[in-house]
């Protein structure tokens, strides 16, 4: 086969996936970005003209605090997820294979229940007269007048609950492939339990950590239902703002602009992590033994 022929074959083989990605990812994303530069028409549709009105509205609309809250709540919830998922993944990976599968199943099965039902369940749990509140009042931990619901705390708790399995699964996959002989070697060389974990186990599952971070942090940034149901106005996230622009104001360009901002927010850290020199060199060299 000549070089040109091979090139053509490569193109033919990648064409379907390129086509798929452009149809369902690149074009819609580009449309969202483009729509931000249209003007809304009075009936809630898109006007014919182009303009920078929505970009100005972005600045005037004081989305800064909401954006900031979205980011810090997501960062906090992601970190909590990783911190909780790490020991769980480690533990499952050390279990005998069959026992590990059972534990994984137990973790995943509750998530067959509808997403909204699970969030409403939390609303019941955290309710002013709910079981958790009553228990905490009885124990004297909280004042009877405090509310566990409709604040950023409630949103973070439910975010953690909802995304924890998504952090456990990639970490487990990485830990399961990890050679625990390396931890023994580190201990043998004088490292204590925690030192061995930090210097050998964590670097060994770094790809899993990265995946777990991305698959929890990115959807959290775009959360809409969770802050809508348990958050209230003081804990709104950017997803709620986008929904309000679409459903209440019928201002599609502004909704698009906000969505574009969110997309950029997600894209930048993901790109930064994926194209960092370290992970690039690892990709080039393949996985270590």
């Amino acid at each position: 086969m000549t070089r040109a022929n091979r090139r053509r074959a490569e193109w033919l083989m990648t064409a379907p996936s390129v086509l798929w990605l452009s149809m369902f990812f690149v074009i819609p994303t580009a449309m969202v970005f483009v729509m931000a530069f249209r003007v809304p028409d009075p009936y809630g549709g898109l006007g014919k003209e182009w303009g920078l009105q929505t970009i100005e509205a972005l600045w005037r609309g004081s989305y800064g605090p909401v954006l900031w809250r979205t980011v810090w709540m997501s960062v906090l919830a992601t970190m909590a997820c990783l911190a909780m998922a790490l020991p769980v993944a480690y533990w499952i990976a050390r279990l005998p294979k069959s026992a590990g599968r059972w534990v994984l199943a137990i973790i995943v099965v509750p998530f067959w229940t509808n997403f909204l039902i699970r969030i409403y369940a939390w609303k019941t749990v955290l309710h002013i007269e709910g079981p958790l509140k009553q228990a905490l009042v009885t124990l004297g931990v909280v004042d009877p007048s405090t509310s566990l619901l409709f604040n950023s705390g409630a949103v973070i708790v439910v975010l953690i609950y909802n995304y924890l399995p998504f952090a456990i699964l990639p970490l487990y996959a990485a830990a399961e492939r990890f050679d625990f002989g390396l931890v023994e070697a580190a201990r043998d060389l004088g490292a204590g339990r925690w030192r061995a974990m930090a210097s050998v186990f964590l670097p060994g599952i770094s790809q899993g950590l990265l995946t777990a971070f991305l698959v929890t942090f990115i959807p959290m940034l775009g959360s809409y239902a969770i802050p809508d149901i348990v958050g209230g106005t003081s804990a709104e996230m950017i997803g709620n703002k986008i929904a309000q622009r679409v459903f209440s104001d019928r201002n599609l360009p502004l909704a698009s602009a906000l969505a574009a901002v969110l997309a950029l927010l997600m894209l930048l850290p993901a790109m930064g992590l994926l194209w960092s020199p370290r992970s690039a060199s690892r990709r080039g060299g393949g996985r270590g033994a």
Binding site: D179, G181, L182, E184, A185, A186, D188, S199, V200, P203, G204, S206, G288, A289
Partner: peptide, 11 residues
């Protein structure tokens, strides 16, 4: 210990 698989730290 020199382990059978050597257990060198790959990173």
């Amino acid at each position: 210990t020199v382990f059978q698989s050597y257990a060198l730290f790959p990173h």
